[in-house]
Design a protein around this nucleic acid. Structure first.
Lengths: 241, 241
DNA sequence: ACCTGAACACCGTTCAAGT
DNA sequence: ACCTGAACACCGTTCAAGT
């Protein structure tokens, strides 16, 4: 079919300007998933974006699953854990950074579930995170509580936000009206109350809920931390670390 | 190929014993997803389980997406919200029930993300949930906080659990050892400390973390609830409702 | 060593044809 | 009204062949 051979991708010297690498493959895959969603992410589409045939990818990655693993790792590489502030500030910043990544790359949420082999980046990140709490005097058990609770909350919040019926810009009140109209009016009286009282109010935005719950969890952890070691906590107020 | 026509699925009277319905299709789809995962869930596999051709399904459902929507709705139909107990007991039971559903049907977690059209069951469930808090005197804003925080936590916890590297029965300590051995030993000192101190301890089970974080969130909500209406809360201690 | 055409065994879905 | 065979335009992946 295609009788014309393009010379794109080749420099003046005749050598391939951009040789195919795992990094370039993952980069192209992320760009496609960001722009068109995971359903558009196929071996053929990734290859096409790189000006290559689908089968060439198999020279650099084992299969599509390997690409998905790398994509998650690459996305989370952007989450930095601040180490020069107190644990609460650091863990709060980390949670918000993870949330931003999941917002920017919604496909990462769906992929979290199926990826089971943490990359080097993920391991380093967790090491830094644990370090923040360890230096603040957290017991290993409390570190486990904090990691599980904070990550669960952020992941789950991102999931909820993605699965909302409509984009933020669209008319949520209108949808609420329509849904309510389709049912016996008194069957969903509480939902109607909630919609009228809250969801349909002018400034409503689900995203605003993120920090409320996050601070709820951080409050609880702080309380547990102080209860476990009140002496040292008081001592560290005046002095080092 | 298949020259033998079976008479299974037909009663003695010659009439189809189990006519194809949306309910039977969804039921079969759930059974397949539970047993073999979503990757085994195809129009052809669902049809085969019902002793029918793939194309017959289209007489009862619009497409595969419609089946997925129905599956999520059917799974969550099993979550009941107790209405004869105080709000905290009710919301705690609801959270644990949702968690149980997500554990029993791990495919539901992955589907949560993409399903955007709530069914009648989902709406009724939310109405009952809002009712529990409304009757306890929650403001609409606090109801929103509670719903977002609790659901985020439970969904996120289920996601984390599914994405754990290994099944509970397998040897997590062994994996931890292997991972640590593959890196420079001091590069992941905090992770090593955490693993030795906590993950590799005999009784370790990630599932145990669920209730800790759940109670953390419930504590925070209770505090907010009491702070917002201390007078009425005290009054309801002695008396009606 | 890296790239590729052709092919395989699958998908979801359409359509015209059967009863 | 409901079921179906054949076909379409896709998938991920293998393999033998090219350079």
């Amino acid at each position: 079919m295609a009788t014309v051979k393009t010379s794109r991708g080749r420099g003046r010297k005749g050598a391939p300007r951009e040789p195919l690498t795992v990094e370039r493959i993952v980069e192209a895959a992320i760009a496609i998933a960001d722009a068109e969603g995971t359903s558009a992410l196929t071996m053929r589409s990734v290859a096409a974006a790189l000006g290559v045939q689908a089968m060439s990818l198999y020279n650099h990655v084992a299969n599509k699953d390997a690409i998905l693993d790398r994509m998650v790792d690459a996305a989370f590489a952007r989450v930095v854990v601040p180490t020069d502030v107190d644990w609460r500030t650091a863990m709060r910043a980390r949670a918000l950074a993870i949330y931003e990544v999941l917002r920017a790359h919604p496909w990462a949420i769906g992929l979290l579930e199926s990826r089971r082999t943490p990359g080097a980046t993920t391991l380093t990140h967790h090491d830094a995170t644990i370090g923040v709490m360890r230096r603040a005097g957290f017991s290993a058990a409390l570190v486990a509580h904090a990691l599980a609770a904070l990550d669960a909350y952020v992941y789950g919040f991102a999931i909820q936000e993605v699965s909302l019926p409509l984009q933020p810009s669209e008319d949520i009140p209108a949808l609420a009206q329509e849904v309510l109209a389709s049912m016996p009016s008194d069957a969903l009286a509480n939902l109607a109350w909630f919609a009228a009282e809250h969801v349909m109010q002018p400034g409503y935005s689900f995203s605003d809920e993120l920090e409320y719950g996050l601070d709820l969890v951080l409050d609880g952890l702080e309380r547990a931390h102080l209860a476990a070691r009140p002496a040292r906590a008081a001592r560290s107020k005046r002095g080092r670390d």
